[in-house]
Design a protein around this nucleic acid. Sequence first.
DNA 1: CGGACAATATTGTCTGACAGTCTGACGATC
DNA 2: GATCGTCAGACTGTCAGACAATATTGTCCG
Lengths: 245, 245
Amino acid sequence: MVAGMNASTSPDVGGPTWSADQVGRVAAPLREQVATLVRDAILGFKLQPGQRLVERELVEQLGVSRPTVREVLRQLAAEGLVTVVPQRGAIVTTLTAEDAADIYEMRASLEALAVQRFVQRATPEQVAELRVAVDEIARTADSSDPLDQLQAKDRFYEVLFRGCGSEPLQQTLAGLQARVRLLRATSLAEAGRPAQAAAELSAVVDAVEAGDAERAAAACAAHVQNASRTALARLRAEAEEKAGD
Amino acid sequence: MVAGMNASTSPDVGGPTWSADQVGRVAAPLREQVATLVRDAILGFKLQPGQRLVERELVEQLGVSRPTVREVLRQLAAEGLVTVVPQRGAIVTTLTAEDAADIYEMRASLEALAVQRFVQRATPEQVAELRVAVDEIARTADSSDPLDQLQAKDRFYEVLFRGCGSEPLQQTLAGLQARVRLLRATSLAEAGRPAQAAAELSAVVDAVEAGDAERAAAACAAHVQNASRTALARLRAEAEEKAGD
DNA sequence: CGGACAATATTGTCTGACAGTCTGACGATC
DNA sequence: GATCGTCAGACTGTCAGACAATATTGTCCG
């Protein structure tokens, strides 16, 4: 019942340590649940970059049929989390340092735009929600569990994107967001970075509350650039480390 | 509202004006061919915004199986060309004036970034290609066939995106690009706009050739903003027209 | 005339199967 | 002994058919 592949694939995949045996038939479409499952596995590094995603193994581990698995892989490919090589299948996307730099620059531009829209369009309730979210980030900054930090950040951006009231903007940023999360784990691992990030985002919300779209956008861009510097420095250090192996 | 906002219930599959009866089994994956076919149909307004895309009809008209159709719809949904409503199926995405405004703003930011990258990374050959592409746009500006104009523009952006040497940037912009093409048909329909657009893009390439990333980015952003103004004015006029009906 | 119920249409998902292609290994030959 | 060619296995790409779940539509009754 479990995948005991003969020695052809990578020998170290071990058991399906990340799979879920139950994907209960609730209201949400099955493929959404599966997509979320696989996405979280990738973002939680339970599936490592470069690792092959063999359809049949996913079918067995997830307990869904192949068409469903294929639709999920297609969707994740569109999100940029997996890369599909024709005739060879899907692998978990590997981001280079250059990719990371570009992603951060896109974020800087687009999130600044999103914040401006938020100032223009969001309801007072949504502004309040944003404040709550940023407080949550500050509270988890000291937490030893990086997962808490990531979730708090996700929550913040969820509120932000929803409040900017633009389907295309939301969709595009969500696509980036998925890739960013991979990098965020890197930048947040830096000592002191979480607290600094919380302060920067708080500045953003200050400007939002003041209704100053310009300043909010600038603060947001500055935040992303800081995160970029931190993450890139670390990524390059890791790359050197690996090269030295 | 009568039974048919779409004449799709007609069993006469003999003459769908946009489908292709032959999707020749060549090297490219079948679903790519199908995706291109449907995408072109949408961008060519053979499938109108809001129109339902029923899986079974697509199966019949395209001559492929349902799993393939579903994967294609999923992919186009990721590109933003169709909107999938759970339990109800896919419809051709309808862009509101606000959506259009946001898309143009995103383009302004991201294409400026792309141009900067192009200046930094593109080879001299690619710069030359870009010049050729922009000349082609200028040449087709007088053409009465809007399709020629669109293709020339596509070519220009293809060169630009490829030359900026960033997979994530390319993918994100391509996603926007698909939606933009829908709008481009609108802005180019304005008298005199094609020639002006050609001049603006030529200015971009001038800056690129001079190696001035700053100026190139600014010129690019300016171009998009002009296109935005034109398209938005027209879209709002059309909206009023429709409201008057 | 409005609302509840039944018929229909369509999506969501599964099972099973087969062809095409790529990988990797084994064996043959130089 | 090394290189090359062939061959088997592994996966993906695609198809066909089927069934349950759900939304939509149309009709009938109060």
